[in-house]
Amino acid sequence: MKPPRFAYYDPASVAEAVELKSRFGTDALVLAGGQSLMQDLNTRRTRPDALLDINRITSLQELQVGPTHLELGALVRQHRLETDPAVRRAVPLLTGVTHHIGHVENRHRGTVGGSMAQADPWAELPTAAVTLDAEMVIEGPAGRRVEAARDFFTGRGTTSIAPDELLVAVRFPLTPADAGWGFVEVARREGDRAMAAAAAQLRLDDAGRVASIAIGLTSITDHPVRAAETEAQLLGQVPTADAVAAAARAVEQQVDRADDVHATLGYRRHLAITVTQRAVLAAVQRAQEGDRP
């Protein structure tokens, strides 16, 4: 478990990093928190010619709460999402999902941008991004562009970042004061990869009907997806336990991850329904209770 030979660069600015990415293209990999990449290097699952360590780029470490968005620099450590009260106030779902990312040691090193760019099917932050319609800020030789999260994740471990581009920030819309959220994950052990997880955020109108709803699913296919059919069934309805249970059944057809040593396809289908149902009910309860810090 020793990595093969690679060249190491530690650019001090985004411009320098983009220049290196332009030069190496797919032969270079970006090192942010290293919680996945270092394992892949040591087990030789990946063999880049060059490693671009972006940890010296201080501008990527910034976290800003703007009038409409929470903007997280790509190097913001995951641990900050669960401990910074500003994040909890701005986008409480983010704080809720972060606790499920590995263990606290991983979260101290792991970054927001790293998790997005790694795009593991079981990862929590990509699911939060898809659920909350986050925007990915990407910089390349031609300048900055912004991509919707739901277009960003294209498959297992793949994103729309071009070989000469760098993900520099992720913008989450501020959560409305009356919204409730829920996140439910099932993993073999605490901190393990999710066998299935669901994130939900919704608002209720004065009659208790669902005024807006977003549900994102983790680990049921090769990238995070929205539970569009379930969302559509619940919109405008009073989210009783029965109604939620019935609507959650619609996610079953979205599950297509094959059997692995932890979960069969059939189990994952049942689990997807269960976590969807529980996440929505938790969101309903928070919306009803007005549970905001």
Partner: peptide, 8 residues
């Protein structure tokens, strides 16, 4: 006995 076995 895995969780999947129990649910099955």
């Amino acid at each position: 006995v895995r969780p999947a076995d129990i649910v099955a």
